[in-house]
Design a protein around this nucleic acid. Sequence first.
DNA 1: CTCCCGCGTCGAAGCGCTTCGACTGCCGCG
DNA 2: CGCGGCAGTCGAAGCGCTTCGACGCGGGAG
Lengths: 330, 330
Amino acid sequence: MVKISDVARHAGVSPSTVSYVLSGKRSISEETRRRVLDSVRTLGYRPHAGARALASSRSNVIALVVPLRSGIHVPVVMQMAIASVTTARTHDHDVLLLTQDEGVGGLERVAGTALVDAIIVMDVELHDVRLPVLRSLGRPSVLIGFPADPTGLTCIDLDFEAAGAACAEHLADLGHREIALIGAPPAVYERGTGFAERTRAGFQRAAAERGVHTVVRPCDPQDARSTAAGLLRDHPDLTGVVIHNEPATEPLLTAFRAAGRHVPDDLSVLAIAPDDLAERLGLTSIAIPADELGAQAVTLLMAKLDGREVPAATLLPPRLVVRQSTPPLP
Amino acid sequence: MVKISDVARHAGVSPSTVSYVLSGKRSISEETRRRVLDSVRTLGYRPHAGARALASSRSNVIALVVPLRSGIHVPVVMQMAIASVTTARTHDHDVLLLTQDEGVGGLERVAGTALVDAIIVMDVELHDVRLPVLRSLGRPSVLIGFPADPTGLTCIDLDFEAAGAACAEHLADLGHREIALIGAPPAVYERGTGFAERTRAGFQRAAAERGVHTVVRPCDPQDARSTAAGLLRDHPDLTGVVIHNEPATEPLLTAFRAAGRHVPDDLSVLAIAPDDLAERLGLTSIAIPADELGAQAVTLLMAKLDGREVPAATLLPPRLVVRQSTPPLP
DNA sequence: CTCCCGCGTCGAAGCGCTTCGACTGCCGCG
DNA sequence: CGCGGCAGTCGAAGCGCTTCGACGCGGGAG
């Protein structure tokens, strides 16, 4: 193994000079810098990560906690993870993968042993048990998702309120006068990931502003058929539906057809769902911006590591992609 | 931060004794051990990862390189990753996430800086450029998938030969006399991930042993319709089809129906595909054992890190799950 | 001409841990 | 009764890097 002292000898300088060349923390003459960098290259020098971490108390590694819960849409998680890694690399950091099931102990471990400098937590719940730990860990963190009380934390998520509103507006613009929102199963509202409620608020607010009637229903994927049937029975004049419930999306479409409504001719449908799903089903949709969430979370974290101030809440604007399922009304 | 010398003082022993208690590398009296462990607990001591890595030249971190290529089935990758992390944790190791696009340089970086002790590479190609690097890195590695020349490397994968054979046998057992294998797109054979060819070999061998006629066709997902039509036209007596081409699976089923063949009544279909897909489509299938692959890869790696010998090749036995698509022939 | 300052560099002191060799009793064996 | 050996413990020497203070030197200000 070639170490910093080898480089120093080869370049005819002291180890500290090499260190300063590499870190840029003190000014170095152009001449010296060049000689050192040449030596680094010809010797193939790579600083020892552990030594560096010990001396600088910075590991240049961040932790990413991924959820395990079933019901989570895996491609979205993966996309965020990949985006996080890619972005972290542009900041000269690496990503340590942690699973939800290590729980609070896992966070304490990687932070306590100084294995990582900072932490990203995905899939935060309203009353997540990890919140107090994250607050007291003494290391920067960023949450993807909003808890009930984000005080003292940095959070980022899709702006679900705006997404709900965008859906209502899109339908209103197309001429719909009575529209519905089919949301998450009751269990989600109870477990609480907050976004369900925010979507509803935006949806109803925007619809009200446009003078459009709204209905909102939760939906268990198992009960898609009865939910759809009930909705259409209770509101025969319904012409547009927003589905914000990924696993129920496909069953609901089937149920609408079974109920004698053909999408898009007799019913317009719009989804808040991962892009691959919407694409496959030909649905106009608002995607979960997984790439941006992952990338931005890292960017925020880096800013915090650099001691910069960052906004406590970051809401990514929804992007609506029009597909076949929401044509203009005749 | 509480350090080992704090624990030592608190327990009335020397730092080295604390270290030996924690590592178990020298015998320690029961009495001392207890006092030390008590102090560790009451002080909340956590060894500094960097310091430990520096002194022991072991980081207790392994790298996991995940593929990015489109066409890869994301849930399978995720499952392997999760399984790797979970298993690594049982061996007191953590997992650093790397993406394919860092390429060879990424491997050299994490190995060269001693950030990781060992490496798992997923989605290995037949003539992967990373192979020579992995051979010369001086750190243990395990490949998930088989390259053309696995000399000097440790590889693990589903036993595709056996999988192909199991499919043929299953159909033969059900009474089929003429069966087909629809494989990967031509491009895959060219890029070469090896498994396509191995599946074919097993399929044809087993069928020959049972005196069953076989046809083998590659298939591009775009050409599913023409592939299916052509196959049924050329072989009107065909009663069973094995699909080993995940993205083409659903299009092919649609194409069969369009060609007037109803699954399972007029045609039995069997897939080598991720479980979630097969489950959704009701297909008898052989799953990619993602969990086991991830877990076993880590187990192999740990063995190598401990200096134990491991088999150069590990083939996981296929497990066939019977669903609705392959009923007994009348 | 002197003084001060800042640039460029060096030396040395750690960072917190592991590990090697050595030391001390103590037991068992010859 | 003496000695070898082992269990149990300690001290010190690093592991390879960063960083702080110091130093020499040259140039501009006074």
